[in-house]
């Protein structure tokens, strides 16, 4: 157990919390810690902080705890927390924003999640579409989980679900250019404003 002095939160941490709040378009003060998000979260068994605790640390300005937490990386983005929150706090968007902030800070608490995401985008960049068998293969190689789901591969192969051939589209250069352009501008576009109408 530890003693926390809340009067000495570094200014940088406060700024980081504000940036996460702005990206997720969430006011963390709205949360009254009822725990309904964590009560219904299907992924808690892989988490080191309850989703509620992620919000709590952000309320306290303790951003390091959140950036180093596995929770946002284990989150399946199913959105059930946000849908049921009595205070309309978008927990799901907060998890995404924390992941972005952590990655920017060079922290990837669940390396596999980062690798999967990375290989997925590479796959799309190369072919224009996602080729499941190559994605799985490359992911297994990079993550070190060499045998994961391999027992299903022969079945898929035999049933014609996967093959040697890749699915490419003719305009895959356009897609790769698009991905490069967007990522170079390092997009942190805001969440789409909710309920906004075209004006």
């Amino acid at each position: 157990m530890k003693i926390v002095d809340l009067t000495v939160i570094p200014a940088d941490d406060r700024t980081a919390v504000a940036a996460i709040a702005a990206e997720a378009q969430v006011n963390f003060k709205d949360c009254y810690q009822c725990g309904k998000c964590s009560a219904g979260c299907p992924m808690v068994q892989g988490m080191d902080l309850m989703p509620r605790e992620v919000i709590r640390y952000l309320q306290l300005g303790k951003v390091q705890e959140v950036l180093n937490s596995k929770t946002p990386w284990v989150c399946a983005q199913c959105g059930v927390c946000t849908a049921r929150c009595p205070q309309n706090v978008d927990i799901c968007a907060t998890m995404r924003a924390v992941r972005h902030a952590a990655k920017d800070a060079g922290i990837t608490p669940v390396r596999e999640a980062d690798v999967f995401e990375d290989e997925f985008i590479k796959n799309v960049r190369a072919h224009g579409r996602s080729n499941e068998q190559y994605l799985a293969m490359k992911y297994n190689l990079r993550s070190g989980h060499l045998m994961q789901d391999v027992d299903s591969a022969p079945a898929m192969f035999a049933r014609g679900m996967i093959g040697i051939a890749t699915h490419n589209i003719d305009s895959r250069d356009e897609v790769s250019a698009l991905i490069d352009r967007v990522l170079q501008n390092n997009g942190a576009a805001k969440e789409a404003p909710k309920g906004g109408d075209a004006s």
């Binding site: 999967f116 997009g187 942190a188």
Partner: peptide, 13 residues
Amino acid sequence: AAKLTSYDLGYAL
């Protein structure tokens, strides 16, 4: 995966 990489990519693709 795209949205988790960047919001912009999540909208662009």
